[in-house]
Nucleic acid binder design. Structure first.
Lengths: 102, 102
DNA sequence: CAGAATCCTTGAGGATACTG
DNA sequence: CAGTATCCTCAAGGATTCTG
């Protein structure tokens, strides 16, 4: 496999999806509590700036791992939860966790 | 899970082990051909500089995923191959590859 | 509340030259 | 052959302030 091929392979795509600094933690929380509003998630992971948290969430959404819902009204609210695709990552992340602990 | 806990969890450790730019490709080649000398590997992945390739290999070795053997004599030779631990990553990387292709 | 805008720091990775 | 040694670039992430 050459580098140009690697760039398009599934492994690379998967790693790009989850390797952002906060992505594993975001996914972890969505796995275990299901549903978060933006500020709720931010307070759960207080060390990340809102800008960066937003960026991570946008990428996760673009990659189809999470869903973002706007709730109409004022003040504005958003709700984030895992997509079906995102849920399929669960066992793999668990495998990686076990591997890292071995 | 708080960030401080995440820093020490297995998932973080695993991601740190494999998320270096060239690590997946290095592991891929070692999986499929078993044994490489330094220059052989470098010519297989020619876009990486020797400095960076060395750094990746050192880290993989420190994390116990690969083994490095020096062959005495001149010119110097080294041989790299997967450790038993490294081989256990195979199925997980395959899962990630499938996931990324889905 | 859920971001967007702005400016800044840091380190991973790259390019090139040198060496035992 | 298998690396070191230097110098350099760039983008991820951080800090802070502003807004509909």
């Amino acid at each position: 496999m050459k580098y140009t091929e690697f760039e398009n392979c599934g492994l690379k795509k998967s790693l790009d999806m989850i390797s952002g600094k906060w992505n594993p933690l975001i996914l972890y929380h969505l796995f275990h509590q299901g549903n978060y509003r933006f500020n709720e998630l931010w307070q759960t992971i207080p060390k990340v700036s809102k800008k960066v948290l937003t960026k991570h969430l946008r990428q996760l959404e673009e990659n189809g791992l999470i869903q973002r819902k706007e709730i109409q009204g004022f003040p504005p609210r958003t709700s984030y939860n895992l997509s079906n695709k995102g849920k399929k990552l669960g066992p793999i992340l668990k495998d990686l966790d076990n591997f890292g602990n071995s």
